[in-house]
Design a binder for these strands. Structure first.
Lengths: 114, 114
DNA sequence: TATCGCTATATCTCATCAAATATAACGACA
DNA sequence: TGTCGTTATATTTGATGAGATATAGCGATA
């Protein structure tokens, strides 16, 4: 059997996407680099796109997910709030569990139908 | 809590998409209408797109998923093979189970982290 | 007070993908 | 043997989204 099952999960708020794999990757890069522009660069993403993603995330979430500062030492920066860290952790846990669940489901179906 | 979790699953063969929600919807429409062009129309999809999807599906699957005929009474038509029907059934079962699983997972996380 | 790297935002260009259009071939049936 | 509604395929047109570019403003620090 050469078939593989794949999945993509995301969290919505008010029928708008809040958090998916791309935004989680960006959040983790922000956590690592301390800056939105460096995070974007590390993911080979334009600053504009990264900013748009984080702007939408911050506006739609119940509480701020990242905080930013302009000017000062280093020019400014961005970092995750505790709430943001929890969101990332929850997302990754669910995502991992989903993969494992689907692999099991696929095996069940293969046994029956193919 | 206004957050909702969503998912999309698909089956790949050789790193190419084989079957996802769109193709399953098309297969069911073919089953209902007996024709690829009618199925496409019922989903407001161009014939070309529908044909391309089913061509890729048939070529990548281990066995044919639909059979087609040209000319004759009614001009021809398309129908699912038994293998195709099993694929659809398996996909929908897994997809349904995945939704239920994710809803439970979401509740767990909400309880802990938000 | 000049510098620096960052956030924040608008605008324009381009590539990619989808849709629309056109056409050939087929075979049962009247 | 002509008609009809399909399948099958190429080509052209159009729209949407991503990327590139440009610019302003900020504040700690030297």
């Amino acid at each position: 059997m050469k078939y593989k099952i794949k999945s993509r999960i995301w969290i919505e708020a008010d029928d708008n996407i809040l958090l998916g794999e791309g935004r989680v990757a960006l959040l983790k890069a922000i956590e690592d680099t301390g800056s939105l522009s460096k995070a974007a660069k590390s993911l080979k993403m334009s600053y504009k796109k990264a900013w748009s993603l984080m702007d939408a995330l911050n506006n739609r979430a119940e509480k701020p997910v990242i905080t930013t500062s302009i000017g000062g030492k280093g020019g400014g920066g961005a970092e995750l709030t505790d709430y943001g860290k929890n969101l990332v952790k929850a997302f990754e846990t669910i995502n991992q569990n989903c993969w494992e669940f689907l692999d099991q489901e696929m095996k069940k179906q293969l046994y029956h139908d193919f």
